[in-house]
Design a protein around this nucleic acid. Structure first.
Lengths: 218, 218
DNA sequence: TGGCCTGATATACCAAGGTATAGGGCCGGC
DNA sequence: GCCGGCCCTATACCTTGGTATATCAGGCCA
């Protein structure tokens, strides 16, 4: 139909980044949106954390601009909640009535920046760009890893065991003894592992294994 | 002479940690020292950054308690200076006249904590313990790596080249071709590498190589 | 000058890894 | 019931890796 390649997991590095702005003050919201749009960024305004969560945001690198004081829930709590839910969107805090402990808590929790009003437009723009860059890097790392995890999932249980022991430096005969197999069977599984994991050499496989099984695996 | 093993790089993990306190106010200095000593920590007072630098601090995990406002130089500048000089002692900031941008800058630069006076004694104690723990972890990592680097330095130039290519997954014959050697010579060097690096298997060597030569090595 | 380290090489042998082909048992889905 | 996937095994053959022993040459230093 079309000559464009359609992939279910395209390279995300080049996609249009977005900025979500959560602030209960409509005038601030709109002014931030227009500021960020003026430098070519896609900015989406939300009045509350709930509004933001209901929205399906794009599968692209992004950044969150968050007022510390939100209706119902503080921005710091929302930050923790997102992290707990596995959403690792970089956060830029803005606040009108912040204090030092608040900013320290936010930065400890991984915030990109904590800006007290009034702040310079350029400071916010810089912080947002930093956040987007951070998310881009994180997404790249996740993508690379999920490729490998996909391959790892295609292994049979036996193949995974053999892979683990091979990566641990065991000889085929040792693996055979440990798994109560003949050496030839181990070789067969080992060959399957190399093929399925697309490893071109043993060092290659070792590095893949360490990425896909960080510590202690079945 | 003695039955005690004397090593030039003993395990640091168990050594007595220390806390250096830099504050130009003698009364604060002494009160912090006595506070930290009351919980069993070794605390050393300094009136300025210069005093601290002149002192030979122990080869043990430590932590720095730093007033943001120092004579001559700000605490934040001193933090940058230390980092630039390769001194990675965790820093806990205390301040009487701090603001949000200051705390954000400090936390971005890796400070453990940023406490505005008045703060609770326990908050400082907790921060210091966190800093010491962080330094302990860092020192452990450095120690483990310097062990490997020591071994790596004992390799001859040829052995390093062979190690690099082995870790890259090249076959002996490919390495021989690339280095213009006979295959048997490669085997000899390879065996030396395994022995000197104390690698028990090829996967073992690959992991060591990745640690000791993070990216691009001769 | 003699000893030592580094580097390179060879022969010979054995262990380990890799591949192809072939076959059997088990189990779950069509 | 048949097929396919998974698991296991075997024979045969070849490649690659690892070790031991020995030789030779250059550079460096006491």
């Amino acid at each position: 139909m079309t000559d464009r390649t359609v992939s279910d997991r395209p390279a995300t590095a080049m996609e249009t980044p977005f900025v979500a702005i959560i602030d209960d003050d409509p005038s601030i919201r709109e002014s931030l949106v227009s500021l960020l749009r003026s430098v070519g960024l896609t900015a989406l305004p939300f009045a509350s954390a709930q509004d933001f969560l209901q929205h399906r945001w794009p599968d692209a690198p992004g950044c969150l601009v968050l007022d510390v004081r939100l209706p119902g829930q503080s921005g710091l709590e929302f930050q923790r909640e997102l992290t707990g839910a596995g959403i690792h969107l970089p956060v830029v805090f803005i606040t009108g009535h912040g204090d030092i402990p608040m900013s320290v808590t936010a930065m400890k929790a991984g915030a990109v920046e904590f800006l007290a009003k009034p702040f310079r437009d350029q400071d916010l723009i810089d912080a947002v760009h930093t956040g987007i860059e951070r998310d881009r890097d994180r997404r790249r790392a996740v993508d690379a890893l999920s490729d490998l995890q996909e391959r790892f999932r295609s292994l049979t249980p036996r193949e995974r065991e053999v892979m683990r022991l091979v990566a641990a430096g065991q000889l085929n005969k040792q693996i055979a003894a440990e798994l109560q197999l003949s050496e030839i069977t181990v070789k067969v599984h080992r060959a399957s592992v190399m093929r399925k994991m697309q490893a071109r050499s043993l060092p290659d496989l070792v590095r893949i294994a360490d990425k896909v099984t960080p510590a202690g695996d079945a």
